[in-house]
């Protein structure tokens, strides 16, 4: 079982994937996200950090055995149990299909929509409207898939659920208000089921779905 | 061993990943990319296709056993042999790290730089200059990694090399002219080694590295 340290900054949904995976697999994971253990923007620019992680990006994982890994999907995969990765060639490929889908078809539009509401990116009306349309497409596809399924791959939580749920986390917390998300009941049911799993809850705490679509925070 | 059909359009570098993986693993892969087998924009909008692949995107894989899969990384992974995926937990995680790196840190800037030269998108000077800088960063990181390695993970070709090489394919063919790429000799050596592998060659044919940086195609 893997054991090591995850370097990240607080509230990093990418790091949550690895943390939740570790909750399921039992991997011993220390999280270094606040000083003195780790200060984003400083620690990750030190020669010591860059010698292990040349890009300086986080999340970054260092095993107690010295093994270093970057890219959140790779770290989450490494910290998973076999069950989470998919227990057949088909299932493990389907898990990766959803992981790719999250990065390709959810994260760009979720970020474009949510970041201005967090005040961390300039608001652009056209970009936000387009992001909404992209998000509708992704949610419709997910909703159709979850119409006859509890989880994305197989009968239990897998890395697919962990990854897609984390990529939707900020959208549900900030902008997917009831009037918007009501068109995707299967996705809502699936998301709530996920965040209420003890392993998710330990990492995410109580996740409150937004009651009103947050507007950009000037 | 997997056996099935890959739906795509000709010269789709994303589909190449799966095709090359199949060459290594021995998976029996039929490629449907031209009429009458498959016409991009028509066949992928038919109810029959959409019932298997709701997003209508390609590449899309359908096994002879009926198993369907989308997302090029998932398809390539499925068609791989265990050796290509990495033969240890560390190696398989490192393979996925490079797969993520390709999608996150190469494809966006390669697309921004190359698309205008193919006439796919409007030229934008600022976007192109930014893309060049991002490409330099990615190539520098790769060059450092390959300074003491022949391949990206382990001692032999893995899905990491297949994925990263394919994500750089159009950049080497169109814009990475000798004056630009000379700063990354290890990457150049590695790329040429890859494309000269019989399995790569069968799929890509003779890849000619550009002699002059292509300009946007008005």
């Amino acid at each position: 079982m893997a054991a090591g340290t995850l370097y990240t900054y607080p509230e990093n949904w990418r790091a949550f994937k690895a943390q939740i995976a570790a909750q399921y697999s039992g991997a011993k994971l220390k999280v270094a996200s606040t000083p003195p253990a780790f200060s984003f923007g400083q620690t990750n620019r030190t020669p010591a950090f860059l010698s292990n992680f040349p890009t300086g990006k986080v999340p970054a994982y260092q095993g107690d055995d010295g093994f270093c890994l970057t890219e959140s999907n790779a770290i989450a995969y490494y910290l998973c149990s076999d069950a989470l990765r998919g227990t057949s060639p088909q299932a493990s490929a389907q898990v990766l299909q959803w992981v790719s889908f999250a990065d390709a078809d959810i994260v760009p539009s979720a970020s474009a929509w949510v970041f201005p509401t967090l005040g961390i990116m300039q608001f652009n009306k056209q970009a936000t409207e387009q992001a909404k349309e992209e998000m509708k497409r992704a949610l419709a596809y997910l909703n159709q898939h979850l119409n006859t399924r509890t989880f994305l791959v197989g009968e239990r939580v897998s890395l697919a659920d962990i990854t897609v749920a984390c990529s939707l986390l900020w959208a549900y917390k900030q902008v997917l208000e009831p009037a918007f998300r009501q068109a995707y009941p299967n996705v809502n049911r699936w998301f709530v089921t996920c965040i209420n799993q003890p392993q998710f809850k330990t990492v995410l705490g109580e996740v409150k779905l937004c009651e009103k679509m947050a507007q950009f925070d000037a | 061993m997997a056996a099935g059909t890959l739906y795509t359009y000709p010269e789709n570098w994303r589909a190449f990943k799966a095709q090359i993986a199949a060459q290594y693993s021995g998976a029996k892969l039929k490629v449907a990319s031209t009429p009458p087998a498959f016409s991009f924009g028509q066949t992928n909008r038919t109810p029959a296709f959409l019932s298997n692949f709701p997003t209508g995107k390609v590449p899309a894989y359908q096994g002879d056993d009926g198993f369907c899969l989308t997302e090029s990384n998932a398809i390539a992974y499925y068609l791989c042999s265990d050796a290509l995926r990495g033969t240890s937990p560390q190696a398989s995680a490192q393979v996925l790290q490079w797969v993520s790196f390709a999608d996150a840190d190469i494809v966006p800037s390669a697309s921004a730089w190359v698309f205008p030269t193919l006439g796919i998108m409007q030229f934008n000077k600022q976007a192109t200059e930014q893309a060049k800088e991002e490409m330099k960063r990615a190539l520098a990181y790769l060059n450092q990694h390959l300074n003491t390695r022949t391949f990206l993970v382990g001692e032999r070709v893995s899905l990491a090399d297949i994925t990263v090489a394919c994500s750089l394919l159009w950049a080497y063919k169109q814009v990475l002219e000798p004056a630009f790429r000379q700063a990354y000799p290890n990457v150049n050596r590695w790329f040429v080694t890859c494309i000269n592998q019989p399995q790569f060659k069968t799929v890509l044919g003779e890849v000619k590295l550009c002699e002059k940086m292509a300009q946007f195609d008005a």
Binding site: N12, S33, F40, G41, P108, S111 | P35, F40
Partner: peptide
């Protein structure tokens, strides 16, 4: 922590590139 979210490379324009690529290759394939 929130501000750090913008540190990660996010391809905001990806949908636009996907659309352009799709049109181009649909066009090429008649």
């Amino acid at each position: 922590g929130i501000q750090c979210l913008t540190q990660d490379s996010i391809w905001f324009d990806k949908p636009r590139y996907d659309e352009a690529e799709r049109r181009f290759y649909e066009g090429m394939n008649g």
